[in-house]
Amino acid sequence: MEREEALARIAEIQRVMERATRYTLLPGGVAMVGGLMVLAGCALSWWMLGSLDFAAMLHLSVAGQAGFCLLWFAIGVAGIVLEAVLTARAARREGLSTGGRSTRLALVSLSPSVLVAMLLTYTFLIPMEPRPEEVQYIVPVWMMLYGVGVCSVGQFSIRAPRLLGAAFIAAGAVALLFFRDWGVVAAALSFGILHVVFGLHVIAMRRRGVP
């Protein structure tokens, strides 16, 4: 055996080992439906607030504020349930255990940043008199921290989730620095449109036979 063949075999072994450890259960349908739910939530928020600024929720009645928080909580819970159900279905289709490695990877990678985002949201909203400028931080903070979580998932996966995570971080930074009072639009463009585009990309990838 020549040195070049040995090097080629080592490179092939590395490629196979990398491919075997990729997280490939990316449910494109979840991203699309989740994105559409967020777009509906944004439209409803705009209607409830009469503004594109999330801080306008402070002008709502107590019941209105509770309803507004409940709306976004429900969208978050629906997204998690949808992801769990469709990922389990994809795992069954691929012949994998539904509580297996892919699910654990997604949970371990995403949960720290989501927990931090929840904690920050709590500190922005809970004071007796929440300050509008702090409420305006909520959407950019969620965009950036969600982006960090998706980037983490992407380290074990194909390139697309890493790009999605980077796009969320970049969009969150722009929203934080320049468009804090456009929270509804920022949420629609990121959690809505970016998810729909990502979902379409994953579905197209699957149709082309990319594992």
Binding site: R9, E12, I13, V16, M17, E18, R19, A20, T21, R22, T24, E94, G95, L96, R101, P211
Partner: peptide, 22 residues
């Protein structure tokens, strides 16, 4: 060799998953 390399990276792989990876 590819089968062995893939299984060296993961404790266990399903047949369909291994087929797609290789």
């Amino acid at each position: 060799l590819a089968i062995v390399a893939a299984l060296a990276a993961r404790p266990q792989m399903g047949f369909t998953e291994l087929k797609a990876a290789l």
